[in-house]
Each structure stands twice: as C-alpha cells, then as structure tokens.
Design a protein around this nucleic acid. Structure first.
Lengths: 100, 100
DNA sequence: CTATTATTTGGCTATATTACCAAATATATA
DNA sequence: TATATATTTGGTAATATAGCCAAATAATAG
C-alpha cells in the first residue's frame, strides 16, 4: 500500500475512532438535533466539564464538529450531518469525496 | 439516559471503535472485496500473524466480520457489507435496524 | 506417528486513552 | 475593578491498546 492510500486509511480511521467512544457518540447524536453549548452537553453527559471539553476537542480535531464562541459560551455543531448516514460520508469528512 | 439507550450507544461505539484503527479498517475494506484467509491478510497488512489474528478477533467480537474454518485455513468475511455505506448500517450491526 | 502449515493464545512492554482535579483564560456583570 | 460563569489546559493515575515473541492448537501431508 502506498503512502497516499495509507494516509487516507489513517484519516478515515481517525474519524471512526473519534466516534468510537460512548460519550463522544452520544454528543454527536445530540448535536445531530441542533447546536449545543458545552454546558448543556456537560449536563446531559454527566461528566466533568474538562472531560467533555476534551472529548469535544478530539471530535473537532477529527473534523466531526465545529465550535463557535458567542459571548462566554462555546456552541458546538455537527460539521458533517451526514455522519449519521455515515460510511458514505467519511470520504467527505476527510475532504476526498462528496456528501449526499 | 436510561440503561437501554446507554447499551445501544455502547454497542454502536464498539463497532465504530473496532473500525477506528488503520489496520482493521484496511482489513474491512479488503474483505469488502471478498473473503480472505488470515494468511492473505497477514501478507497484505505486513504485521505479525498474531497481531492480525487479534485484530480479526476484535472485529469479530464487534460483529463486523465472521470467520469460517475450512481445512487448516480460517476465512474471514464481512458480516455487514453495508458497513461500507455505514452509519445507516450501524443499527443493523447491533441488530436494531435494517440495512438497505 | 512426525513434521509442517495455519491460526490462536498467553505474556510482556511500550504507548495511548480516559477521567478527574486544579489552575489558567476569557467574557460578562455588579 | 472584583466577581461569577463558561471553557480550556495541565497534571496525573488508572486502565486499555497494540505489537511482538514464544508456546499451544488444529489440520494436513508424509
């Protein structure tokens, strides 16, 4: 397998891995219903603020969510709603395809 | 969140997590092309026999692949081909939905 | 039965992940 | 400015993961 193919596999795996944790998957499914601030997610998840924040950072780094700071709150939204339709969309997440 | 909802999230996360490793994702994509024995996958992956075997066991436990021993060889196949269309199919993987 | 091939399992080490607490930062309000 | 709220960052300990080697199993060939 060449470097490029390997890089694509790695990127896809990273996205999948980011979704492969109960808390993060829960967050993604919650965000599928609309944007949420960190504080709302903290309440829903029931974990420490810092824990939720780190999960969100990881999801952001994977390209799954994006944040928007308004005032003192940070609102997160699903960057790729199609992630709920999924494998079809992994290519789009990593920018090598389109999301239908 | 009640226990049942949590169990569903956990199961989905387990599937996603199983796919969230480059080697395992590679294996899944290779199996999408047809069944392969462990020895073939070992050659393709380029890792130790035991390493590949463990990845396969993990994928099997996640419900993503199934094995079939014929003679001295064990052939693996994708249990849910729709995993390549994906999120749509996660429900099917854990038996709570259908795969189109 | 012995040797060979295919695969899994056990053991071990290095690395990564997760979660919490405490501290730092940023913004808004009194 | 002092204070409160929202969030992130740093530190740390417990747990989980990944990969290799060696040994155990299973099936086949001779």
């Amino acid at each position: 397998m060449d470097d490029k193919a390997q890089a694509i596999i790695d990127a896809k795996a990273k996205v999948l891995k980011s979704l492969g944790h109960p808390t993060r998957l829960f967050i993604v499914e919650e965000l599928a219903r609309g944007e949420r601030c960190v504080c709302e997610l903290v309440k829903l998840v029931g974990a420490d603020f810092s824990t939720v924040s780190k999960h969100l950072t990881l999801l952001k780094n994977a390209g799954v969510v994006q944040d928007d700071k308004r005032g003192q709150m940070v609102y997160y939204t699903l960057k790729v709603p199609c992630i709920l339709r999924f494998m079809d969309c992994i290519e789009a997440v990593i920018g090598t395809g389109s999301c239908r």
